[in-house]
Design a protein around this nucleic acid. Structure first.
Lengths: 238, 238
DNA sequence: AGACCTTATGCGGGAACCCGCAATGCTCTT
DNA sequence: AAGAGCATTGCGGGTTCCCGCATAAGGTCT
């Protein structure tokens, strides 16, 4: 089995390589890439079917890279391996994972044993495996039922790009007023108060983006990805 | 000399420890911390005068930790050591560095030789040293003269918190209209177009925050820090 | 079936925002 | 000293935003 390791931190890369050879005797070759473009080239040239992917890299981020890999062959098995337990990453991944593909999401702070287990489960057995830390995070209830549903999240993405209500409505196929209702529930779930302590009114749109970032519902990579998707959508109609 | 190493990634920590003992025979003891609170305690208990500090950590971030250390003893020598060349970090540091303190900013991708040099220059010789990669970034000219001056940056921070014009004016001691002028130049420098390609008007405030994040003028840690500062400011008047 | 709840949508108004126009005051040059 | 240039501030108007109120459609429970 050939494995592609996409990781721009040399220490983490060599650690992972070490664990790979120790854990999986099935592995015959390990290829390297330090960003998304390289990963794409390598995977195509070497017909890779198992990948370990860092999420935060310079250039193209891990989620977009994974999307390209899965477009080319949907049965690619990918273990995402990240420093951060951002809800944004998990949402990004579940938005692009093909029907019955194998993938996993593990934190870099996971102990060696759990890493070994995840490597075998995902890359060899083709299972789906998500680090408990991350799963727990998704179900958190810091404020009452603050889990965003898909349409709310889509509106949040559009908002974060700076789109106005009218454009969001057009893009989401909603009426103007519905978009505004979504925004209302977004403000609620993100904990956007209409006034701060000291009777200071705030700009809710900006505040919503701020809160989404601080709670890790969004992160900067998400914004970049959303931007590119918006441009594609915009050019695909005219 | 006692050195405190603040770093939550074990690989990077052991690498740094390795380089430290190899490079600086002056070092007698190396203490460890994995976040800002620990760093504060250790530094106080051990009367530390030289620190190597990661910037992105869970809990308290590196810049706030440094601020506390410098408040307790202004002659502490700190080498910041980060994965990311965000302008936001550099601004955050230069905003809190005391008069003639020694500090440095180095990327983790820097080669071992440059790291050794920086360690000696900052921790032993008390010089100031900023990685060329970062310095270059600060002077970038992707769009014409897009370097924000201090007052523009302050307004950007307030905007990113979701403050309205009136409140920004009060906090910055400007008139309402002046704040709006600052916003105008912010929109200009951040490349906020009034319309996208396809005649799609946008929400400039949100767009400004979006652009600031994508260009790394701000990052999420900056937002968190700004939030705490705003709360302090707000409670210190009433 | 009828009461009830949730969701989508329309309407209207008050507040905030964006920004052109213009007046004032400061600095710098000639 | 006069004029050019820039920052600061006020005013006014057009637009967007936020949201209460009201209506309609569709689902659920008794």
């Amino acid at each position: 089995m050939k494995v592609l390791l996409v990781e721009d931190d040399q220490f983490h890369a060599s650690y992972m390589e070490d664990v790979l050879v120790e854990t999986l005797p099935e592995v015959t070759q390990i290829f390297h890439a330090v960003n998304g473009q390289e990963a794409e080239r390598e995977a195509r040239a070497m017909s890779i079917e198992a990948v370990v992917m860092d999420l935060r890299m310079s250039q193209c981020n891990g989620i977009e890279a994974a999307q390209i890999l899965w477009q080319e062959r949907a049965d690619t098995r990918i273990l995402f391996w990240s420093n951060y337990a951002d809800e944004a990453y998990l949402r990004g991944i579940s938005a692009i994972v093909p029907e019955d593909s194998a993938y996993g999401y593990l934190l870099k702070t996971a102990p060696r044993d759990r890493l070994k287990l995840a490597l075998r489960a995902v890359l060899v057995e083709g299972q789906i495996m998500v680090d408990r830390e991350i799963h727990r995070l998704q179900r958190r209830t810091s404020s009452p039922r603050n889990t965003l549903d898909d349409s709310e999240f889509a509106v949040l993405l559009d908002l974060s790009l700076g789109l106005q209500d009218r454009m969001i409505a057009e893009r989401q196929g909603m009426s103007l007023r519905t978009v505004q209702n979504r925004l209302l529930s977004l403000y609620d779930k993100l904990g956007v108060e209409d006034v701060s302590d000291d009777e200071t009114p705030i700009n809710k749109r900006v505040r919503a983006l701020n809160r989404a970032l601080i709670t890790r519902t969004l992160n900067i990579e998400t914004l970049e990805t959303a931007e590119r998707e918006f441009e594609r959508w915009q050019s695909s109609r005219a």
